[in-house]
Design a protein around this nucleic acid. Sequence first.
DNA 1: TCAACCAGTCAACGGCGTTGACCGTTACGC
DNA 2: GCGTAACGGTCAACGCCGTTGACTGGTTGA
Lengths: 199, 199
Amino acid sequence: MTKTSPPARPAPDERHLRPAGRATRAAIEEAARRLFAERGFDASVRAIAGEAGVDPALVIRHFGSKEALFLRCVDTSSGLGAVLDGPLETVGRRLVAYFLDPDRPLLRQRYLALAQAAHLDGVREEMNRHTAETYVAALAPRMTGPDRELRVALAVAQVSGLLSLVYRQEDPVLTAADTTRLVELYGDAIQQLLTPAGL
Amino acid sequence: MTKTSPPARPAPDERHLRPAGRATRAAIEEAARRLFAERGFDASVRAIAGEAGVDPALVIRHFGSKEALFLRCVDTSSGLGAVLDGPLETVGRRLVAYFLDPDRPLLRQRYLALAQAAHLDGVREEMNRHTAETYVAALAPRMTGPDRELRVALAVAQVSGLLSLVYRQEDPVLTAADTTRLVELYGDAIQQLLTPAGL
DNA sequence: TCAACCAGTCAACGGCGTTGACCGTTACGC
DNA sequence: GCGTAACGGTCAACGCCGTTGACTGGTTGA
């Protein structure tokens, strides 16, 4: 006869928690956000637990797994909406300028953390969701011509590649280049996919 | 008084090896190549050692570290030279077609392994070297106009982004898209950076 | 009052990369 | 011919990791 689900702890269920549980849960999440931002996915569950003053097992108890905790802590939301909602004819250059703005160091952190954890299925799904809900939803409806979704996806690929070389690989040519020139060149290459010359 | 270099095993030194050492070293390397190709950097030293019929410690003894072994096993050489040496005016589309060719599954494997291990300094350096020695060296001398190196580096960023979305992220839009159309659109976007309309 | 359940700790498991101590064997100088 | 040094290799262990199960108190509600 099949085992009738042994008395393993059931799902944490998020809703009916006592105040104490809610508090430490928040403390763990805060510590995780900071450490994941600092060290990326390399931040260990044990370090997060220590930072929150809690036993490592409790971290898993509350969030299920390190991956689930990571997914909850990483937020892809950003000031990107304003960039994408601006004039469609210049969104290419604005996108590049946005991501290369040295006053936005958190973007670099977030990208590195996500890229480092891209081997997790959940992270990949989140990235695809982000592409669809942020980029495609904002740009495709205002575009003309065929293959609108495909062209947006390819523009996202361009952005992704730029971030990969600049942030991760730290390509010496791109790092040493004049940012203004880079924005012009790469921004126009992106623009060509979104609003090509022949419309 | 400072310890005069304790009798720790010195460098493996590669050259003066006895036949037995040379043989097992080759066996380890072969096993590593296969497992790294199969499972990427997740392939464990212990698994590689088991595949080679050897103690895990010996793997480290021979190659110094898992990272060093990985770097020795990953080869970025490929049929790319022929693509890059062809007509400069159509290299964009040929590049995309080359990487999307379904008859070249090893490209995918190599890219995934490299991307997964990109957090290692040695891997990043190897990638930058590859960009400079393969792409820049082949394309920049034949190009015209300003910022030739920068434009090649940006084209590499485009290729990198495409591989990232197609291979790693498995973006549903790109995966479902017609390859021919994709080659046209993205190839032309790359081409614009290498040989822009206004020369 | 008492049973159910939440919050939390503790020790442990299996896996990882890596290291140091320890042998047999091979090569070489005297 | 023989001692000795270096090579080739194994073994057990270290310290780390994510995760789990058993267990202890405290809180809550019937």
